[in-house]
Each structure stands twice: as C-alpha cells, then as structure tokens.
Design a protein around this nucleic acid. Structure first.
Length: 339
DNA sequence: TCGATTTGACCCGC
DNA sequence: GCGGGTCAAATCGA
C-alpha cells in the first residue's frame, strides 16, 4: 500500500501534537531560555505542518501550489513570465524571511577552512564578492530543497577583522526531515574542506563543543534505582532490544541509548541555558519522532553531581524514547559544564 | 558517472 | 544604476 497520504497525515498529526505540547510547556515556562526554546519549536511545528499540507495538496491535485512554506515566506510573482516555469513562480528575492545569525569561530588547529558542520546538510549554490567586504559571501541551501520542499538557506561571511570568525546568517528553518538522512548528512562531508578533514570531522574531540559532547556521552549516567521496575518498563518504550537491556540493567549510558536508537550518534548539541537547566538532543536532525530533546537539570537531592533529565516533548509513537523523571549522575569533572 | 562546487550572468529591490 | 541573491552551465572529484 502506498504510504503517501496516510504517512503525510500521520506526520501532520504528529507535528501538530508536538506543537501543542510545546505550547503547553511554553505556558508553564518561567525561564526566558525555555520560552525561547518552546517558541522556536512551536514555530517549527507550524512550519512543518504547513509544509506537509502544501506538499500533500500538491500531490493530490497534481498542481504545484504557488504558496511557499510559511517559514520561507517566499514572495510570489503575481505575473509569472511563463506557465512552464512551474514552481519557479517564486521571486528570486526572498523577503520577510525569518532570519537569525550566529558567529562561529574556527580555530586554525582543527584545520577547517570554513565553519564547522551545523548538523544539516547544505549545498552551496553561489558565492559573491560583497562590496566593502574583504572576503566573499557564500550561499547555501538545504540539500533536500527539491526532495522535501525545504527552503532553508544560510549565508556564510568571513569576518574582515577576524578571519577565524564566520558570520552565519540562517534564513528560514528546515522543514525537511533529515532524520533518515542523518547518517548521510553526518558521515558524508560535502565540501572539499570537509572531505579533506573527514577524519577530523568524525573525531568528536577535535572541537571544543564536540569535546563537551564526548564528555557528556562518557559521563552521563541515568540512575533508575529508585524507579519501580514495572513503572520503568512501562515508561521506557524502547525498541525490543533495548527494553531487554533496561530490564536487566537499570544503569545505562547515553551512548548506549544513542547506539540503540539513533544509530550510534552522539548528541548534536549541548546548550547550556542556565546552570540548573540544559538541553541536549540527538544529533544532526530536526526534532521529530526519532529525536528527543532532554532537559537536564540539577536533581532536587542534595548531591551536587546528581542531575535529573526528562524529555521536553511527548512520547513518540514511532521510536518511543521517553524518559520518566529520572536521575542522571555526572562525573564531577563534567558537572562544571552545568555550572 | 553522478553529485557537489564554481562562477559568470541574470534578476530584483532599493 | 548598484549591490545582493539566485540560477544554471561548466567544471571538479570521488
């Protein structure tokens, strides 16, 4: 049976459910970082939902829609030059696109000539000398632009003053689902620089952030001793192989979780928000069924190195990686990271 | 051979 | 008209 419409429908329901859950958590949030985080996730859910609707409608009617995904806000040319341009009714100038920038410093010692991978798969489509700028600006768009109608783009501009500093401007967020492409995105460097430094890129200890991730992965422990066994079983709808592991050994490492659920990835980012609350997620993917975002915070116990972790989203109907509130023990050295 | 990058040309907004 | 953003043919490289 063709998965098509039913899959899209299920994806849509799932996206809207996630959005609803984040809206609830937004209402309960007290920290500005949490507000921002949940707001981003709600927007992402809306964008994905609209993208799904757009794609589904187009598939059903066999008519390309002129409406671009919300997140891209691509202006529509009211007077297309020719009917055979199909999807290319969009203007080459994109306006009012949600944009945000970040600065990435690249150290000479890690050998990169460009910014490090941000977890998404990008394809360079242009480079331009910018008036008054010493270095050209590079233009990237999502590799899955055509396949998944994802209109996220980014611009990379090297700083004039500090060549090791790259200003990265993102336009639009990803509506693509790179989950099943994560392996390819993460393990198949696309640019010459990345190919050249593939070994370094795959080495989690080549960059400070990856160093932190490696530490997290190595030192994070989840202590479920105080959990009722039945409750743990009920609350840990892992894959069959993993649920067996849980029942036999209630101490496990996040690396084992990763190996079982996401094919051996390490967390893609660790975002320290406040000393008592930090987020981390599974790798190189947008948040979806196979990716959870964990909220790691200090346990209410008196032990300084004891942390609690819970997911910030609803249980997944597909993977079902769902942590009940539980204790995460951290190596004392690593606890510095959390303040 | 195929996918990604390069680069000159084109288009559009200001 | 200028500058920035995008396209697409040519080129590269695995």
């Amino acid at each position: 049976m063709d998965c098509g419409f039913n899959c899209e429908y299920n994806s849509l329901i799932n996206e809207l459910t996630q959005g609803l859950e984040h809206a609830k958590q937004l209402r309960a949030s007290k920290k500005i970082q949490e507000l921002d985080f949940h707001m981003q996730m709600i927007l992402s859910s809306f964008e994905k939902s609209l993208s799904i609707l757009n794609w589904t409608s187009a598939s059903v009617t066999q008519t390309p829609l002129l409406v671009a995904p919300l997140e891209s806000s691509i202006s529509v040319d009211e007077n297309p030059k020719s009917d055979d341009q199909d999807f290319r009714y969009v203007s080459k100038k994109r306006k009012q696109m949600p944009t945000w920038s970040e600065q990435v410093r690249v150290s000479a010692e890690n050998g990169y000539e460009g910014p490090t991978d941000d977890g998404y798969s990008w394809r360079k489509y242009g480079q331009k000398d910018i008036f008054g700028a010493k270095y050209p600006r590079s233009y990237y768009r999502c590799t899955y632009r055509l396949m998944q109608n994802c209109w996220a783009t980014k611009q990379v501009q090297r700083s004039d003053d500090d060549p090791a500093l790259f200003e990265i401007t993102y336009k639009g967020s990803h509506t693509c689902n790179q989950t099943h492409n994560c392996a390819a995105a993460a393990t198949q460097p696309k640019s010459p620089e990345k190919r050249k430094h593939k070994k370094q890129a795959n080495n989690p200890r080549t960059t400070p952030s990856n160093q932190m991730l490696a530490n997290l992965q190595a030192n994070l422990r989840v202590n479920t001793n105080d959990l009722d066994t039945k409750e743990a079983t009920r609350s840990f709808p892992f894959s069959p192989t993993f649920s067996g592991f849980v029942e036999e050994n209630l101490h496990f490492q996040m690396s084992q979780v990763d190996d079982n659920l996401v094919g051996g990835y390490s967390p893609s980012f660790v975002s320290p928000t406040t000393p008592e609350s930090s987020y981390f997620s599974l790798p190189n993917c947008q948040m979806n069924d196979s990716q959870r975002i964990y909220n790691v915070h200090h346990s209410e116990s008196d032990l300084p190195d004891l942390f609690s972790a819970n997911t910030s989203s609803t249980s997944s109907p597909i993977i079902g990686l769902e942590f009940p509130p539980e204790h995460v023990e951290l190596d004392p050295n690593f606890s510095d990271f959390f303040g």
